[in-house]
Structures are given as C-alpha cells and as structure tokens.
Amino acid sequence: MTAFDVTDVLRRLVEDDVISLHALSALTRMREDALSSLLETPNGAAASRSSRAQPLSSDEVGRISLLTAQLTEGLRVDDDDRLRAMFDVLTEQLGLTHANIAALTRTDVHDLERFRATPATVPPQTKYELASRVSYLVHAAAQARGD
C-alpha cells in the first residue's frame, strides 16, 4: 500500500486544473499565499523562514488533508452507497425517521424505503430527486449545527 502524499496529490489537482488555488482558498477559508507555499514546498515540509507566507496551522493541515482525500478517494464511492450514508446520517445521528425525511424533502416515503432496501429497483430520476433533496437536508442540518 502506498502512502497518500497530500501535498503531491493537491499539487497535481491544481496543476491539472481540477481545482484552482483560489477555489481551495474559498473552500477552506485558508490564505491563498499559505496554500501556495505548501504546494511549492517539497514533500509538504514546512516553508522556509524566508517565505512571506505564514505556515498553515496543524488544524489547517488536517483540514486540507481531509479535503484532498475527499476530492480524490471520496469521489470513488458508489453513488448509491453515498446516498445510503446520507440517509444514515439523518436517521442515526440526527434522529429523523423515514417519514420525517420524506416529508421534509417532499418525496414519497415508499421510494425512500425501496431505495434503502434495494437501490437497483429505484429509477434513476427518483434516485436523483432523493439524492439532491437529501443532500440539501444534510447540508441544512450541518449549517444549523454549526458544522
């Protein structure tokens, strides 16, 4: 198994125009100059003292590492599995029932339960509606919790 070199992977994402430094800064609320310094430093080592950018804090390094993994490895997760995980967050962590989720997302509870039991039997359009609305609900809950 190969180690996941966050700096190298993130550098490649920027170089390949998958994401811009500006977008990374906006996503993370980290200074663009500090992110640039991180990407210019071999193997993610701390920037030299002569660098004008303040180095990233350990919290920021952890957050950028998590985001890098999510933007690369996380997107390889099957869409049905990802939607199932969102339902799990809503039910197991937030205490919503299937009926609550259906009412809040204005979807049919039977479609939701059918997806939970056998995703392959649910038409793509219905999955799309479930995914977009459940994603919105997860995001709304995260904002309400201050996450």
Rank of each mutant, 00 (worst) to 15 (best):
Leu130Tyr: 05
Leu35Tyr: 07
Ala99Thr: 06
Thr2His: 07
Val109Cys: 00
Ala120Arg: 15
Pro42Phe: 11
Gln70Ser: 10
Leu27His: 07
Gln70His: 09
Arg82Ser: 13
Asp111His: 08
Ser37Ala: 15
Pro42Arg: 05
Leu96Ile: 02
Ala47Trp: 02
Ala131Cys: 02
Thr2Phe: 06
Val18Gly: 00
Gly74Cys: 06
Ala34Thr: 10
Arg106Glu: 15
Gln125Pro: 08
Pro55Asp: 07
Glu73Gln: 12
Arg116Ile: 08
Ala3Thr: 06
Gly44Pro: 07
Leu27Gly: 01
Leu56Asn: 08
Ala34Asn: 03
Glu15Gly: 01
Leu39Thr: 03
Leu10Asp: 08
Asn43Gln: 13
Leu67Pro: 05
Asp33Trp: 00
Leu35Pro: 02
His98Ser: 03
Phe87Ser: 01
Ile101Cys: 00
Leu104Ala: 11
Tyr136Ala: 14
Thr7Glu: 15
Leu24Tyr: 01
Arg106Ile: 02
Leu137Pro: 05
Leu71Ile: 04
Leu90Met: 09
Gln54Ser: 14
Tyr136Arg: 13
Ile19Leu: 03
Asp78Phe: 05
Ala46Gly: 10
His139Lys: 11
Phe115Gln: 09
Ile64Ala: 08
Pro124Met: 10
Ser50Lys: 09
His98Glu: 02
Ala85Arg: 05
Val77Met: 06
Leu67Ala: 04
Pro124Ser: 09
Ala69Asp: 13
Leu71Thr: 04
Tyr136Gln: 13
Glu73Asp: 11
Arg116Glu: 08
Ala103Arg: 05
Pro42Trp: 09
